[in-house]
Design a protein around this nucleic acid. Sequence first.
DNA 1: GCCAACGTTGGC
DNA 2: GCCAACGTTGGC
Length: 155
Amino acid sequence: MNYWLMKSEPAVFSFQDLMKMSPKGEIWDGVRNYQARNFMREMKTGDRVLFYHSNTSPPGIAGIAEVIGEVQPDPTQFDPSSKYYDPKSSRDEPRWIAVRVRAAQELSRTVSLHELKTITELESMPLVRKGNRLSVMPVSAKHAQIIMDLAATVA
DNA sequence: GCCAACGTTGGC
DNA sequence: GCCAACGTTGGC
């Protein structure tokens, strides 16, 4: 079982929104970055996802989600009415993929980016590095555990 | 709203 | 293949 981090703007889709979708979860589509896509390809059922709220105040880890089902072609790439439509993609050779996730664990509090930046052991996390814009990234089991332990403590 | 960082596009 | 121009992300 591997850990990942995925970013979402809570004004668009929040962890609370995902919880409302239980137990079916929601398809995570619209990823249009090759590096992020390549990470998604490695996702397996049961993998855990740190659900990160971006573009909000404060940004931070809002909950834990879980990958369910296999990685699949992102249906929005074939839909001309979707803002994620990609005319260069084809059903024979889909360019983009999506994955279904569901809420797995509610955290007792959000762990803010600011707080993560104060933890020495998390210095090597891409997330806390300046200028990082990747929306999907792997997280080591050790880092994931540190973050979940943090969430269980009082801020 | 600002802007740094980064990815993509396309002319050459 | 280079790189300027442009668009997007996302913290602040």
